[in-house]
């Protein structure tokens, strides 16, 4: 097990950069292979060069951007559902309130 106090592998920006560079290279390779390798296709779109990479990339960008828009509409505080009385409390609270009011009237 790694010593938890020592800086981790990803704490060094150079390491991160190196990993990313390898990753970019993989991506480029995969893109090139699209041209090199002949594939049997079912759907005409599959023959388009770079269909899968483009679809994957754009799909995810759209996904994330749409999710960000959704956030504007759907996001609420963490305790959004928490601070509401339970039905039981609701009934009893109201009832107590009403009764105290009633007894006030009596007085």
């Amino acid at each position: 097990m790694m010593n938890s106090d020592s800086p981790g592998f990803f704490d060094k920006p150079a390491n991160v950069k190196r990993v990313l560079r390898v990753f970019y290279a993989c991506c480029a390779l995969l893109l090139i292979m699209d041209v090199v390798i002949h594939r049997h296709v079912v759907h005409p779109w599959e023959t388009l060069i770079g269909f899968y990479p483009l679809y994957g990339f754009l799909g995810c960008v759209v996904l994330v951007l749409l999710a960000k828009v959704m956030r504007k509409v759907l996001m609420r505080d963490e305790d959004f559902y928490d601070h509401q009385p339970r039905v039981v409390d609701l009934v009893t609270d109201k009832k107590d309130g009403a009764e105290s009011e009633a007894s006030d009237v009596d007085r």
Binding site: L31, E46, F57
Partner: peptide, 18 residues
């Protein structure tokens, strides 16, 4: 395999880019 790898890597690329 190629299609799946392309899809996944470029999804990851999108993540990195974003």
């Amino acid at each position: 395999v190629l299609a799946q790898l392309q899809l996944l890597f470029f999804s990851a690329l999108a993540f990195v880019w974003l």
